[in-house]
Design a protein around this nucleic acid. Sequence first.
DNA 1: AGATGATAATTGCATTTGCAAATATAGCAC
DNA 2: GTGCTATATTTGCAAATGCAATTATCATCT
Lengths: 155, 155
Amino acid sequence: MGPLASYLPYLLNRAGARIATAFGEEMRPLGATLQIWRVLAALREQDGQRMGDLSSTTSIDVSTLTRLVDNMEKKGLVARQRDPEDARAVVLNVTPAGRRLTVRILPIAERYEKVALQGFDPAEAEQLKAALRRLYANMDGLKKPPPNKPHGRRG
Amino acid sequence: MGPLASYLPYLLNRAGARIATAFGEEMRPLGATLQIWRVLAALREQDGQRMGDLSSTTSIDVSTLTRLVDNMEKKGLVARQRDPEDARAVVLNVTPAGRRLTVRILPIAERYEKVALQGFDPAEAEQLKAALRRLYANMDGLKKPPPNKPHGRRG
DNA sequence: AGATGATAATTGCATTTGCAAATATAGCAC
DNA sequence: GTGCTATATTTGCAAATGCAATTATCATCT
C-alpha cells in the first residue's frame, strides 16, 4: 500500500471524523448529539420509520439505536409506536418538540455543508457526492453472503 | 436542507461507516481491530511518532489512543519509549510482531481500496481523493479559535 | 534559579457502542 | 392449527469512547 494520504478509506475516515467532531460540538449547547441529529434528519426525510430502516439510513447499529431512541423518547423528541401492520416492528414518530429541535439544527447543518464544500463549484460538489454514493454501493459486494446451510443439501 | 441523499456529511458518514464495519469484521480473525490497524498503518508510514501526532493522523482522541496503545503494548505490537528530546512526550515504535501483523493486514487493505473504487477510472479515483483532502482542509476553518484571553489585553 | 503559563500524556468517570443472546411476532409448510 | 424458520426489536455485558481533571515536563520571563 502506498502512502496513507492516498489511501481512500483513510481519507474518508479522516474527513468524516473531522466533520463529525465539529458538528457534535455544536450540538452540545442545544442539548443534542450528532446521533440524535442523524435520527431526526432521517425522520424528517420520512417520518414513521421502523427501527430497522432507521438503522440502515443512519448507519447506527440497531441495538445502539434502541437505546438512543430510549433517550430521545425521554427527552420527548420522538414517540415509539407498535407498527399496526406488523406487531414485531416499532415505528418512530417525531413529536412537536422533535420538530422544533430539528428546525434549530437545520441551519447549522446547512452551514456545514457550505463550509465543507468551500471552493467546490457545483459540478465538483455533485461529482463528489456521486462518487460517495457509488463507493457506498460498491461496498455492497462485501456484505456477508447468507451462511450456506448444509441442511437440505441440494446446492 | 434538501433530501438526505444529497447531504454531504450524510454521504460521507454512510460510506465511511460501511467500509469501517466491513473492515473491522475482517480484522477480528486476525486478533486485531480497525483502530489497531489505523495505528499500525500510521506507524508504517512513519515509525516513532508521538502520541499526539498519532492522534492527529489517525483521528483517534488522544485519551482513547493512550488506552488503545496500552492494549497494543500488551499484545506486543508496539513499544512505548520516552522521547529523548522531550521528556513529556512518548514515542511509539512498532515491534517485529507489529510488523508481521501489518504485513498480514496490508493485502486486505489493498483489497478494500480496490473494491471501494470498483468502476472508477484512475482519474475519477484521484479526483475523489483530492476532493476528500480538500474537504478535510476546509474544515480547518471551523476549529475553535483559541479562547481570547482578556489577560494581557494588548491584542 | 524561581515563577508562570504552555504542552504531552495519562487517568477518572460516565456514556456510548456493538456483538450475542433473548424475546416476540410473522409466515410458510404440512 | 402446529411446528419450524425467519424477521424485528430489545437486553446483557464487556469494551471503547471522550470530556475534564491531573501529572509531568518544557519554555520563557525576570
